[in-house]
Amino acid sequence: MTPFLFKAAFCAYLLSTLGYVTSILGKRVRIARASLWLMSAAFGFHSLFLLFRIVERGHIPILGYHEVLNLFAWIMAGIFIFFQFRTRTVVLGAFVSPVVLLMMIYASRGIGSVAVMPAVLKGTLVPVHVLLSLTGEALFALASCAGAMYLLQDHFLKRKKARRVSSILPSLGDLDRINHLCLLWGFPLLTLGVLMGAFWARVVWGSSWQWDPKQVWTLAVWGTYAVLLHQRLAIGWKGHKTAVFSLLAFLFFLTAFLVGKNLFPTIHRFV
């Protein structure tokens, strides 16, 4: 059952991505709306898949990059669909769905493998740490998608090219609102997630901080977003500046993740 559910979710994500791309190229909002339904269906299959997987293995699938990115894709899709109730940004899916699909492609390469849960991860705090951090990061990913689309729309409006492409993109107000909500929720969630991790490290490794590369870059990313949130809430940054900054911040996060993953040894690796 689980392989079928994963395949169903994968296909639905693929179709919705194709739909979204068509809607942007063909400038038809209706196709984007249909794609949102497809994405919701994909999210449904994906949720069932995770549920079956948890029942099957007896723990939340958080071992290794395949499982973590799979979870990340699920959270990101879920949050995006949730935002559709609060904003009129259906076309934003054209930037979100390819990201989700990419993660699903990566996840699909290792989703069947069975890994043994190492002793160091056996504790209720671990899934909480992972879920909180992933949700925070997924919110940041969404903020960057909204930021990218904001910059596109901003470009059209500033250059007086508010023509057909612009007419299908969401409004600056809605995109900025998503950016705001993502930062507002993402930052405290990531903070809690990191604290949980630090607490667990103290339990299993004896100290909260090991100067591990992964810990260092996580802290750097956390600091970047702390600055961004401060600028937004206290200084009154809005619109263009936050869009640019959240895009850069996420690129920084992505670079740190990829460099850390491929070049540095870390004790924060379990499979």
């Binding site: 904003t87 009129r88 409006l157 508010a162 007419s167 993109l169 969401p170 409004s171 600056l172 809605d174």
Partner: peptide, 18 residues
Amino acid sequence: NAVSVGFAAVELAKKIFG
């Protein structure tokens, strides 16, 4: 698409503010 200056202004305002 809007075909009067007034409607064009409304459409742009919607693109900016939602």
